[in-house]
Design a protein around this nucleic acid. Sequence first.
DNA 1: CGTTGGTTTGAGAGCACTCAAGCACTGTGG
DNA 2: CCACAGTGCTTGAGTGCTCTCAAACCAACG
Lengths: 237, 237
Amino acid sequence: MAYLEADALGYGAGNLNRTAPVCETNKTGFAAFGGKATHHDSHTVIYYEGDPAKRLYELVKGTVMLYKLLPDGRRQVVEVLQSGDIFGLSSGSENDCTAETLVEAEVSEIDLKQVEASADLQRLLTKCLTNQMHVLHEHAVLLGRKSAVERVASFLMHLVPERGGPGCPGPRGEADDGFDLQLHMTRQEIADYLGLTIETVSRVVSDLKRRGIIRVDRADKIHLNKVCGLCQMTGMH
Amino acid sequence: MAYLEADALGYGAGNLNRTAPVCETNKTGFAAFGGKATHHDSHTVIYYEGDPAKRLYELVKGTVMLYKLLPDGRRQVVEVLQSGDIFGLSSGSENDCTAETLVEAEVSEIDLKQVEASADLQRLLTKCLTNQMHVLHEHAVLLGRKSAVERVASFLMHLVPERGGPGCPGPRGEADDGFDLQLHMTRQEIADYLGLTIETVSRVVSDLKRRGIIRVDRADKIHLNKVCGLCQMTGMH
DNA sequence: CGTTGGTTTGAGAGCACTCAAGCACTGTGG
DNA sequence: CCACAGTGCTTGAGTGCTCTCAAACCAACG
């Protein structure tokens, strides 16, 4: 089993929705601007939708999701953030999403006022926002136009580095086209991210297992037997 | 009929997805930075998904949609832009969406290099991106969690200024809670924006008509009889 | 060994989709 | 002035994918 190995490489859920490196030109992030480092346990809310937006946050380590709730309890996870991503920006005076950690996370906070002033921060911000925008566009296609199988396949493919994107090399060489994944989201979180129900996600996963595309060692430990085969099921090929 | 009146006020499709004014702090937009003004007829492509991204565009007048296509022809309209909105930013070197006008439009173009240099442009950009981000978040909820009726109701409500948002005053006074709309999108465009089929959109509109919520004078001229009643159907109350 | 929380599986229903026909408005030519 | 495509929208019938509700399963834990 190479789960730990994959994790150590920063893979696993670590590059969700990441087709290109983000904000890596600025290695220091908010640290260079006196950002206050904070630690958050797994599944902790950093701020709630509707809270006054006074700070900007940079995810340094871990994974954070942003979600919105409808009054009757329906939830949509709108973004899953990775290290380097910035969140907490609001078009009004209130946060438009709730931010919650998926796993333990290190976050760097700075005051919104600082951002207004610093040109470097603005540049960093533009870059990150552009990237998040791109991810949101792709996610809109997933939510609006893809079937359940295509959604789950797309989700899993996003967890495989260097694959599925425009520069996908195809199956490396020949037979061995496998990959080990460590999920950092529960079925419920995946469902709310993909616009499905928990049962549908589970059924699709079971179906992929039955068809030999994947192997499920534990609910959160999945081995992709045929990365390229899975990629064919995303609706993008 | 007050259609022309509404249109003259800049309503109609003019404030789609606009809960707060955008980029209005910078009245000049790109003009102040030597942006090249261009004119585009209705339903003209400004750039295609996959084209090299070399310029940044500001919509000065009219309406532009951004959409993505899946290889089998499925389309998802990911954004509907209004004057003041900026588009053409890409996280890679290629445009991630196709940009097409919905109606005649005036666009101001500037070189991407200019943006890198100007702090004012960066600030303008951050503001616009933040706004678009907020709209995309809300749209993700619509696409992932709302029923067909809720999607169409939400869509129509976005065309009514000052209503449906957090500061909604409710039905003004008493009886008269109507509003005239001029749509600038075909049923197909609406369907592709809402993640539905053209038939479903048509059926929902007919149903709203049957229930007395709206009156359809022409396919693109709709009178809302009960704005508040419609608002109740968006899933957000 | 029972409890708990998360996951999987099953049966059935319903909403939105597909395919197909009908309708309304527009412009064109005889 | 009317016939006739042409285009876009609406309506109908039937199917199927995903949802809902419910029960079973499983690993972790006290």
